[in-house]
Design a protein around this nucleic acid. Sequence first.
DNA 1: GGACCCATGTAAATAGTTACATGATTCT
DNA 2: AGAATCATGTAACTATTTACATGGGTCC
Lengths: 213, 213
Amino acid sequence: MAVLHKSPRALDDPADLPTLAYALLAVLARTPSTGYQIAQQLREPIARFWEAGHGQIYPQLAVLERHRLVRSASEPGPGPRPKKTYSITKRGLLYLRRWVGLPTSRWGGRDDLLLKVYASWTADPAATVRIVREAEAHHADELASYLRMARAQRVRGVEQSSPDEPRFAEYATLRRGIGYERGRLAWCRWLIKRLRSADAGGGRATGPGSRST
Amino acid sequence: MAVLHKSPRALDDPADLPTLAYALLAVLARTPSTGYQIAQQLREPIARFWEAGHGQIYPQLAVLERHRLVRSASEPGPGPRPKKTYSITKRGLLYLRRWVGLPTSRWGGRDDLLLKVYASWTADPAATVRIVREAEAHHADELASYLRMARAQRVRGVEQSSPDEPRFAEYATLRRGIGYERGRLAWCRWLIKRLRSADAGGGRATGPGSRST
DNA sequence: GGACCCATGTAAATAGTTACATGATTCT
DNA sequence: AGAATCATGTAACTATTTACATGGGTCC
């Protein structure tokens, strides 16, 4: 059978969609948005768990629309092209729901800083301290912004929300974000201390082993 | 000028290499290995920070060799092809060192589980509990294996090692691994408790807010 | 006038995954 | 006999990044 018309394939198995598709559906399940707004959301504190640039988002939204998992409404909008506000369809919500229950297979991933630290014994200790300090500053910023959000949420009584409310999910992911940044920050600080004490001590660390992970 | 021979390009800027290349160099800086062994290393407790399959590793090693950042020695080996043991060159070590000192630009990344939790309000709470339980089990296993390694390292006096020794770097990355798994585990457990109490309580959570992140 | 935000696309290149292909040795 | 481990490669496909392209409105 020759495939001449390239119609949207059957798509019975939700696993046929890339994870990015579910990230977009997850954002749209909360609130209808333009592609531009989705890109912003994924860069904001909550929803920091899936990076994507607009060069990836726009084509994927088109695919989702072809599969009728999202729907779009066009308005004149700025720029030469019409502005499209996407919203999730019943079908899209069904697919998202199914995917959430699927076993998670991808653990770990890729971590630039950890790789650098792993290779740091080959480098100048001062250079290592420099990059870890940069990381420390970065994580301190992130943590501060997460904590600001958490305070704002607490005022709105998120702690009493139920798991079928979007704000519960937001609270849960935010909480993980805070834990992650705290852990990273503590580790950066421990590492800096160790690197500096070795630097001062002429190569060998001797001070009392500090606590914290 | 027509490019007819495709000789290894200038490569003055270390940023021209993908991060994978530095992951391979970092492993080889420790000890000469075959491509197969590198793949194993990247799956083991230490060095879990850069995933890569052999389909990516072998071609990249060939690129590194063309640039003379690694060198290989061939032996008859099993299978139809010769077994190649790669080792890092002085040039390779220089490149690695330079890269370590470069500012880290890639933060965050992608996290399947967090995305699922973010979308969990659309799904069946029982399904959510199921996937978080799977995660809990996974992180408990990882943590146990990290702690085993840490105990083994402690016996060998790693805490007194200096930052120019590979084992210090191993200790540092391992320590981060432990912190990460602990944090994740605590979060999974908190989340399960919240999901279950809401399930029992008929939709609204009311119990005393539990501590821990 | 220039920079930045809104807004949407496409093209080219790079990175990463999965499947195909081969074959000896060791363990069950 | 069948599976797992050691070992290396390639091809096809999928995913991601980066650069090009356009243009109005707002702020300094």
